[in-house]
Nucleic acid binder design. Structure first.
Lengths: 206, 206
DNA sequence: TATTTTAGGCGAAGAAAAGGGGAATTTCAA
DNA sequence: TTGAAATTCCCCTTTTCTTCGCCTAAAATA
């Protein structure tokens, strides 16, 4: 059972009211919101939408309108091309899977929410102690600056691009710290390093 | 029962309308969208497509057109829900970004391509030497069996669920190997372990 | 090749939903 | 008890769907 134009407007008004005010509107308020002169019309819309299972209500109860699950399902479908997988819980060695309260899916769209996000594939072992391995992908958000401890993509002297942890040092210098005890940190003047982005996430495919 | 050219156009228009507006178009609107002068023609198309099970509708009901499951099945290959980020190249310590030939974007849909894919958040350090850390998410593909060396979600004795590397051993036993030298491998008879899935990917958010 | 079927199309008339209104009535909770 | 809110009844207009002929071209069939 599909929605009509007006019914969709009705639901959107209701969703907005619920969202903003936290409680159900009265018929009077709905009539006002939708430019209707008669409460009978409001009532009819409610009966229709209840019949289509888009909303629930209590009979003869004031301000008892609720959006039904069907509404939310449909809104999720139509809106973002969300690629998501169910997030079932947490797993640890030797214990059953714990369920996670609240969040119940992992949405990839979150990772690419910012239009300036891009990916790089990592070469080498320079971040191995941060558990970023050869072949992993890093999702990088374009950003001109970084805070201490951020993992950044840095352009040094206009030629070398490296993946390192970023730290401010005394005397207008910065330290670019690899996460590999066999490698030395790089100390460079602030002016000769440009932060191209911060690592938001790491992705590894097997 | 295959679609004709015009019928395909019809469905595509309908899908577009539904997607954008969130409700079904009227015959009038369809006629306009497809450059038809008569509502009778629209009606005929609808009857034809209903007969072929590509859409559902309510008799005599306004704006009640819905795409049937058959439509989505058939259009699946046409619909990459493309949440993707550009993949700019490879990065290594001390060298410029190399461009990657061929692949130039990282598509998240690939990770969840199989409908049985789910995510788990990792607790603890038992896979730390495989660079899977506390808090990381693993994407798991449901699968009853595993090959030696796969990282699997295994249910042992019907109670314990663990994340381990899987190896077949002599004598109808399997070894579940943590990637942490402080922890011991588990040896169990094949019958008392059930593989719930294989880890396809690891995801870490900062 | 002649004939029938089918997809696609046009217009207009008729019928049923959907949308809307006014006013009286019932309900519920304060 | 009383007022605010929900429900009902009856009526109206507009929108939308359905049906009935009638047409052409292409495809299938005899």
């Amino acid at each position: 059972m599909a929605l009509t134009k007006r019914q969709k407007e009705f639901l959107e008004f209701l969703a907005g009211f619920l969202e903003k005010r936290g409680y159900s509107p009265s018929y009077e308020e709905i009539a006002e919101g939708l430019n209707l002169a008669s409460l009978a019309t409001v009532h009819k819309h409610i009966l229709a939408l209840e019949g289509k299972h888009y909303l629930k209500r209590g009979f003869n109860q004031s301000r008892s309108l609720e959006l039904a699950p069907k509404y939310y399902e449909e809104m999720r479908q139509h809106r973002p091309p969300a690629v998501e997988v169910p997030l079932l819980g947490r797993i640890a060695a030797g214990s059953p899977v714990e369920a996670i309260a609240g969040q119940d899916s992992l949405n990839f769209a979150d990772f690419a929410a910012d239009p300036g996000t891009y990916a790089l594939q990592v070469r080498g072992e320079s971040m191995i102690e941060d558990h970023i391995c050869d072949g992993d992908y890093v999702l990088v958000q374009k950003s001109g600056d970084a805070r201490d401890g951020d993992i950044v993509v840095a352009l040094v002297d206009g030629v070398e691009t490296t993946l390192k942890r970023f730290y401010n040092e005394d005397g207008d210098r910065v330290r670019l710290q690899p996460a590999n005890s066999t490698m030395q940190p790089i100390y460079v003047p602030k002016q000769s390093v440009r932060i191209q982005g911060k690592v938001l996430a790491v992705l590894r495919k097997y």
